[in-house]
């Protein structure tokens, strides 16, 4: 090191605090964290029961957040998976139709992987925009769930297993929450530490550059869609286990809620920006808002108004929106200035 002082890039840029500041400025979760802080403070002062009854809150967060975590992997690559809610329904119906619980779970999860593969086929091989390909799959899979179930809820053969599944295992933690935490940790490690996962950001940030850098873009897309399908199927399995029955209309609100969680957490729909932690922050905020409002006796409809308002706030406080407003104002003012003398 001492022998090659000329190679050092100068103390200012390599300075530790500067690097830390740069790293913090790159984070995308700030707005989500600010919202979470506001939500936590507000609930602590108005409805502290949300935190004393934390198993309820965690259950709600896991319900909203699980599908959102898988979806985040796809959104990071600048794609969208609209079929997650229908995948959840199909997986639930498939699982409940198979008498053996273990076999049912395996087949349902494989169905999720297969659905992800089909989505990826249309996006990668045929070259359709993922928004439309998965919109088509939304309809196809919803139809499939209805056909497989005979248009009515399917009861699980082994109801005992379902009842056992709903019980807390570690302290007050239910298997649903535990699985949610495991999926979170797994995905977080995948997109930050594993090479294939880190390449998701490159694929979403600049696809051509990623391709030129030798990243197998198509294979990453396949991985992303399969992850999303798998996690959605997992959510379907959990739903079915907890309710001991599968409803073909299940998960109709899941799609919009999980997109909302990701966006509130700072994940950009254009791809390349965002994080799994952000989605967790988004799901936590939404879950705490919902449970807090429920415990305060606020109707579900009014809760929706809150969530919609929060989402609108999240999207219009995006830095890009600020720049657009400033640009608009500037051109507006300069236009005026040009007009007045004439």
């Amino acid at each position: 090191m001492n022998s090659t002082p000329t190679l050092s890039l100068g103390p200012a840029t390599t300075d530790r605090s500067a690097r830390l500041r740069a790293a913090l400025a790159r984070r995308t979760e700030w707005r989500g964290l600010a919202l979470l802080a506001v939500v936590v403070v507000a609930t602590l002062s108005f409805e502290p029961l949300v935190f004393t009854a934390y198993p309820v809150t965690l259950g709600r967060v896991a319900l909203i957040g699980l599908v959102a975590l898988g979806l985040t992997a796809v959104i990071l690559m600048g794609e969208l998976d609209l079929s997650v809610a229908s995948t959840l329904a199909v997986a639930g119906v498939v699982m409940a139709s198979i008498p053996n619980v273990a076999l049912g779970i395996v087949v349902a999860l494989c169905a999720g992987l297969l659905i992800g593969l089909v989505n990826a086929f249309f996006v990668v091989k045929v070259g359709i925009n993922s928004f439309i390909a998965t919109l088509g799959m939304l309809f196809v899979l919803r139809g499939l769930a209805f056909v497989l179930s005979g248009e009515k809820p399917v009861r699980m053969a082994d109801i005992e297993a379902g009842i056992a599944f709903g019980a807390p295992i570690i302290g007050p933690i239910t298997p649903r929450v535990l699985i949610f935490v495991l999926v979170f940790i797994g995905l977080q490690i995948f997109v930050t530490k594993v090479r294939a996962g880190r390449e998701f950001y490159a694929v979403g940030g600049n696809r051509q550059a990623a391709r030129d850098a030798g990243i197998p873009v198509s294979r990453r897309l396949v991985t992303g869609f399969m992850l999303s399908g798998f996690v959605a199927a997992l959510a379907g399995v959990i739903n079915t286990m907890e309710r001991t029955a599968a409803d073909p209309t299940a998960g109709s609100t899941v799609l919009l809620a999980s997109i909302a969680a990701a966006i509130i957490g700072g994940v950009a729909l254009t791809g390349g920006r965002g994080s799994i932690v952000g989605t967790l922050v988004g799901a936590l905020s939404l879950g705490i808002i919902e449970v807090g409002l429920t415990l305060s006796g606020v109707q579900v409809d009014v809760q929706q108004i809150f969530i919609g308002g929060v989402l609108l706030l999240a999207v219009i406080t995006d830095p890009a929106s600020f720049r657009a407003v400033v640009g608009n104002a500037r051109s507006f003012l300069s236009g005026r200035r040009g007009e007045t003398p004439a």
């Binding site: 969208l80 929706q304 609108l312």
Partner: peptide, 11 residues
């Protein structure tokens, strides 16, 4: 998509 999603929730 996000804007109209949030106005759906609110509306």
């Amino acid at each position: 998509v996000i804007v109209t999603l949030s106005t759906t929730f609110v509306g």
